[in-house]
Design a protein around this nucleic acid. Sequence first.
DNA 1: TAATAGAAAATTTTT
DNA 2: TTTTCTATTA
Length: 802
Amino acid sequence: MHYLGPMQNQPTSAAAPRSESEAPAPRTGSIAARAMAAARPAAAYLDNLNPEQRDAILTIEGPLLVLAGAGTGKTRVLTTRIAHILATGQAFPSQILAVTFTNKAAREMKERIGHLVGGAVEGMPWLGTFHSIGVKLLRRHAELVGLRSDFTILDTDDQIRLLKQQIQAEGLDEKRWPARQLAGLIDGWKNKGLAPKDIPEGDARFFGNGRGRELYAGYQDRLKVLNAVDFGDLLTETLRLFRENPDVLADYQRRFRFILVDEYQDTNVVQYLWLRLLAQGSRNICCVGDDDQSIYGWRGAEVDNILRFEKDFPGAKVVRLERNYRSTAHILASASHLIAHNEARLGKTLFTESDDPDAEKVRVAAAWDSEEEARSIGDAIERLQRRGASLDEVAILVRASFQMREFEDRFVTLGVPYRVVGGPRFYERLEIRDAIAYFRLVSQPADDLAFERIVNTPRRGIGDATVQMLHAYARANRVPLTEAAANMLETEEIKGKARSGLREVMASLGRWRGQIDALSHIELAELILDESGYTAMWQNDRSAEAPGRLENLKELIRSMQDFESLAGFLEHISLVMDRDGADGAEAVSIMTLHSAKGLEFDDVFLPGWEEGLFPHQRALDESGRAGLEEERRLAYVGLTRARKRAYVWFASNRRIHGSWQSSIPSRFLDELPAAHVEVVDQGSSYGGYARSTYGAYGESRFDRAQSFSSSYDTPGWQRAKAARAAGAGTGVPPVRTGPKVIEGELIARSVVGGEARFAVGARVFHQKFGYGAVFSVDGNKLTVDFDKAGRKKVVDSFVDEA
DNA sequence: TAATAGAAAATTTTT
DNA sequence: TTTTCTATTA
């Protein structure tokens, strides 16, 4: 897709500081700057970097793409690079734009820079997420895009409710045309930077009897009336601001002497356009990312952005970080071999210099069903624990969140502490959102969505009918709902319970507003929750969740203490949906593969490698080959989270939505390199092949144990025995079990001192080191005398016959 | 208006 | 299986 031409060249020297805050920093590359840098003794922060990292940090000028494989020190490069720019005086903190995707990443980066520069930097005003920087820009220039600077930011929930109204207004059937789906479409359009007029005809036709475009346009109008933006707008409106106001753009182009982007593979079209505009100023843009870890395509991320970098930014330099400091050679080889099945990639080969002779191969194991999978993994984790492993270093990474449950159940029974990472987030909880709606309404009387949310929570006898009347009045008179309510109370239109209820809320709201200045925001918050009857509502609720909800409300009040005012708090939570949790005791982490990106553990369990689940059927159906490749990247992300050991599991039967379904092993299992994988039977119950022949429905676990010997009388078992016999004399301890045959096919053979792929003296070729001759062979590890690179130890899967 | 019973639908989710 | 929404009824 060529929707864009290459970036225009602009002279670097155009930068001319204008305001005080942009006081002259030494001109990039000026003689003075270079002299300063040269005169300085080699800075401590540059110690212990490998040559590629150093290159990425010291290449300050011009566009630079850092392709950073998993575990290659990406964050270190990014932070050190900023520290370097600051330390050599090439820019002030306020002249560096550094964008990340998550608040967590932004926070970490700030901290690490602080450490590197010795805390001398007073924050970096332009280090943050795309969205938070967008908010900052929009608040400054709100009037230029038709907003007031106190605009509110809607979350997904508000968005959906608004769209639902839009759909109703168009007279469409809500069931046939779910608001959720429309929200998804609009998000998609915004990610691509498409305004209502720009969306493709096909897309517009697709939804709501061809009224997609009208719905989108109507929604945008409504947002403007509400003085509100959604998450997508934070990016699209900023882009519009720059495009329609060249003077504003020029100002920021001058300001940002250096631009750094984290996780570039996850940028979407708008973000890309936004960066490209800003980068036309200094041309000093450095993007760090890994095309093999692009797993958010379904959210609009364009892998293409990273694949096309050199075309978009002519003269760009590309640095590859391939030296992995995290995982064992077996894990790296497995991950690399797997990801090599993808076509759309720039191609990197991770390697490690560590050659731990005790490193364990990636294990693949089968279970009869998902319960057994959970049981066996639970047992394995207990074994690790007994061996003294820290549970903090153990993670279970699942494809879909419904898989988590079985593990949770199992851990509860075993008494193994665990923590679910991700999942429903604090500020998204019902009670928290209700409370926040109250706060929002007090600080912003025109917030219609907040009003709707709480008018009848707790119950005040104000039902749908009343709310509809308010809506009609509000629309007819173009006033916010609060005002409509106030006016209608003057008339006789609303009667009975609804009238008294409404009168009561309106009086309370007025009272609370009057106390904004008199009370601290904490006291006010407590007062609101108390007087509104909201706390009482949950106290009277005898359901199981009620106490937890009250606890969460307390937690909400507590977290408000970190802020100066109600407004400041509301701003924060609209962007940061997560609370930075203070992690308590040691526990196993359970999370989705998506939320595991960027983390690492000693032991990683990867359950559920079955066709349909992983790769997920829907990814295949909806995005075909691209979908499959993204799933494969997800598998790659999963494997590369492991430092020491990775365990891949699949179950032949899985319960999905209550009914049992049988499944076949994931194709990704076949894509693992046999030499680095050991297929194990965890000793739990049965041979997979035999299982399917015996059709063991209704069998008890005990029965399975009895059929043990006969179940191994399979071709696979024969092969296993042969393999074991072959390995017997080599001094390698015999493995407990042999290869497992699944659905009659050998997916991966455990090589127990098996035939070496290369003989001493053989000519080989290595991606990185070139041609060479094998000097010695040790299992799957080779020592090779490379013609150019000298003697290196490498894993055999990395070399080919020359 | 509120409570309740029954039906339909349930990837991944940085902001 | 479980949750969430909708339609029905008091």
